[in-house]
Design a protein around this nucleic acid. Structure first.
Lengths: 366, 366
DNA sequence: ATGAAAGCGCTAACAT
DNA sequence: ATGTTAGCGCTTTCAT
């Protein structure tokens, strides 16, 4: 046989440690008795190959169990067909849904996903971004842990990788973004409460934040910031003094449920709550139950995100639904476009939220 | 400023398309005026390098903004420090939690995660596995779309990559597995119903399955199979004839809620339901409400998975809680061990489920 | 301790 | 249409 020979000579020290050597284009080429280049062309479906040769090569590949090494390919082409996604926590239904939306688009466009959790901390976010960059992802999707400290994002841009932000924006970074109309959403949601006659309304978020919220203060997450803005403005418009006093951040560190209990009990207790996401709504619901407050008679509750169960509780919960899937999908679409070379100006897409009125709002008790 | 200059000199045909050339060890070596090998040693923290040189190299790397190319490293070492995970659907809370559990362990051990959704179809599962293998992941975590058709899993084993199954097992494949004690769980859950006096009890799963379930039939998902086994055995022990007639599979294709409505209405309606996961429980809950059936007075309901909201509905739902996080984490632990070379016999870890009795079970109406 | 050179598996010029 | 060759960025012998 016209063995091209020498490539089989040495035992290799590399490999996956199971002693087996991966089948390479060279092997296939040898078996099909063509050059490496021709084999590669047939296998990689590029360049020009005669039908007969192509078939011969493919059969050989089949028989040897050839499986292309995507890494080697990336080394020479510079494209990895992989996009990185950094979410706060994949267990959070918001991120799970957004990730799914992104995954579907990515998949269709031929990209795989490397997933990392930042836990909303810039430090682990930095680490995550570091690995993804090292793996030479073609672009990144990130829900930035901070909209203010943009160093991690700058790293990405400096590395020359397209970046699309989702759920949150960041000032001063060259990137597209896909977010929801949080301020408007917050206004509507809060308006429901003020219209019903509430004057003591609390806004609860788990956003990490040291000390209490002060008016005009810059918040780490732009989406929460927007919600807070919508919330306080609406309160102010209703003539409620010191709206910012009703903003409760950092609820995770302190235990959401406990924070909720504090807010809805005592002499100056809130009579209504705006929960910044469905998990917070859950905690508030539990808190209310634990202190014997009925919703909506004793406490009104509205929340962001139409989690699947929000229509099932008694009472069902009035929510501001976000197109979560679409946020992830659209972000992925923008990213793919950038990766493919679109050099247009950066855009920020703002998707509408949708109010779903249910049964958790009533006038306050007198 | 001390611009080092030359790295911008040559145009390169590779790269990320943004015209920028990545900084390589060579560049750093040149800047630090040492050989490539030495620079690599200093950067990669292996081999022997004098302190002074190490420092010089690191400073140069810092200045140039060097970022190791993990792909090139993988090419030569054969290790990618990446593990692949294939789940049914990341949007499903079960998988989101298991993924998080796995991600945490992987992260600690220095591995990244490539995520794919199989949608429980062997075809897209095959595709997903193909890419992950092409990317030379060091090992795979998969919740197999089929416990019966093991070709996709065989591909992995044939490729010499460690494989750990989670949530489901598969016969005849050389792999570890981490599952929950589903049969026992199903027995307990169903027992609650038979003890309460129910005789017409339905089991609902979204597992894809053509035609109705027949006794002894092999099911695609081992976890569902085990639950069905526990369910039918318990009915049989209670003297209920033709237990298998009460097994309703394929509920997703037909619409879970509609399937539920069919089962809980009509002359031979079920008076109790075992939902194979929390999303199904949700649909049953909705179905009951839509046809005006009260839980538990008119219909008893129990389910697998203690989703966060199951304690909040009225009535709260009795569930069999699974250690989902731990399933993913333990699977990742086993995988990491294999990747590190553990050649011991394959194990299947079975984790216990835990019954949480709440308010959704009552005796059937007469 | 450091350097020179080979090679991982692939693609891309450049022949022929 | 096919082959030859060089090279992607790194690690790893093997010298020195």
């Amino acid at each position: 046989m016209g063995e091209h020979g020498s490539e089989h000579a040495s035992s290799n020290t590399h490999g996956n440690g199971n002693g087996r050597r991966e089948v390479t284009v060279s092997d296939v080429a040898a078996a099909a008795r063509v050059s490496k280049a021709t084999a590669a062309r047939a296998l990689g479906d590029y360049g020009a190959v005669s039908d007969s040769v192509r078939e011969r090569v493919q059969r050989a590949a089949e028989e040897l169990g050839y499986r292309a090494n995507a890494l080697a390919r990336t080394m020479t082409t510079g494209r990895s067909n992989t996009i990185g996604i950094v979410v706060g926590d994949i267990e959070n239904p918001f991120f799970a849904q957004a990730t799914r939306g992104a995954a579907d688009i990515a998949d269709t466009a031929g990209f795989d996903l490397i997933l990392s959790n930042s836990d909303e901390e810039t430090e682990s976010e930095a680490k995550a971004i570091g690995v993804q960059l090292a793996k030479r992802v073609d672009g990144l999707l990130v829900a930035p842990a901070s909209s203010v400290d943009i160093r991690n994002l700058r790293t990405i841009v400096d590395a020359g990788r397209p970046l699309v932000l989702f759920d949150r924006v960041a000032e001063g970074i060259e990137a597209d973004a896909v977010i929801a109309a949080n301020r408007t959403g917050a206004r509507k949601l809060t308006g429901l409460l003020t219209s019903a006659g509430h004057r003591r309304i609390a806004f609860i978020s788990t956003l990490l934040h040291t000390d209490g919220y002060r008016s005009g203060e810059v918040l780490g997450s732009s989406s929460v910031a927007e919600r807070v803005a919508g919330f306080t403005t609406t309160l102010a418009e209703a003539g409620i003094p010191r709206p910012e006093a009703w903003v409760r951040l950092n609820a995770r560190a302190d235990g959401v449920e406990r924070a909720a209990v504090e807010l809805i009990t005592g002499p100056d207790a809130a009579t209504a709550v705006v929960a910044s996401d469905s998990r917070i709504a859950l905690a508030v619901f539990r808190a209310a139950r634990s202190v014997g407050l009925r919703i909506p008679e004793d406490l009104s509750l509205v929340a962001f995100d139409d989690a699947d169960w929000t229509g099932l509780t008694t009472p069902s919960i009035t929510v501001m639904s976000q197109p979560i899937h679409e946020i992830g999908a659209e972000a992925a679409r923008l990213l793919v476009r950038r990766i493919r070379g679109d050099g247009g100006p950066f855009v920020t897409k703002v998707l509408d939220q949708r109010l779903i009125e249910r049964e958790s709002v009533a006038p306050p008790r007198l």
